[in-house]
Amino acid sequence: MTVDVLTGMARAIRGTLGLVVVVVMTGCTSDLRAIREFATVSAESARYEELVDDYVGFPQRKKLYQGPTLHPQLEDEHKAREFQRNLLLLRLGIIREYMDALGALAADDLVVFDQQVEGLTQNISAMPGVSKEEVETYSGLGKALSKAATNHWRQKELRDLIENSHGAFDSAINMLKKFVQVGPVADADDERIVANRYYKDAIRSSNDSGAKIALEEWRRYHLAEIKGRAISATDYVAVLEEIKGGHQRLYDQRNQLDSKALAVEIREIAKQVKNLYMNVK
């Protein structure tokens, strides 16, 4: 064989290896980052503990507007809600725990192959006649193959988690939505009626024009505060709805979790959850 033929073969081998690297790199570029983003913002949104505080504190807030004869009724209600506090926080905590687990499984840095690749790089570097570019290429190949192997495993675990939990997740989110509607949203409606009645009656009963003006200011201030709470609670229902929708998409596409189209969609949902939650806060 002539030198030209050998050189040609070497080029061909290098070309083929380059192709292998490209193929492997392409094959293992499973974009689960969008799922991680979605899980992270969803877990963050499940930290909305003020909602539970508002719910538990509602009977106490009503004391401001109601006479002492009605306070025992409000005390009873407060005790019942105080009992529910930890149960509600626990449920928000479970949603957070689930989303944390989902996000961690989708994390790119779950397994770091730096150590193995470093050893590989050193071994290759020690070989005579291997260029710096080749060392980088081969190291990249080793890393890419290792990632491909674990990506396959990760996707299977993610798929199993989503598939097995979807029904329970759906019910859990529905429960929280119902709680927000029956609790904080309805509370705000009632509080508006009570505050309005209290101030209107006080204004009409007063003969002091200065007091009337001050009471009117207080009425507006409190109604605005109550309206803010109502909007936050309603927005939080939208956050939960969005999270539920995101999980539904993951469930529908559980066999193609690394698809680019799903990544685009899930990233958009994550953005939406984040924006909606910012309004809530």
Binding site: E97, Y98, S165, G167, A168, M175
Partner: peptide, 9 residues
């Protein structure tokens, strides 16, 4: 449902 979700997590 919550117990199942916690178990899965």
């Amino acid at each position: 449902s919550f117990a199942k979700l916690q178990g899965a997590a």
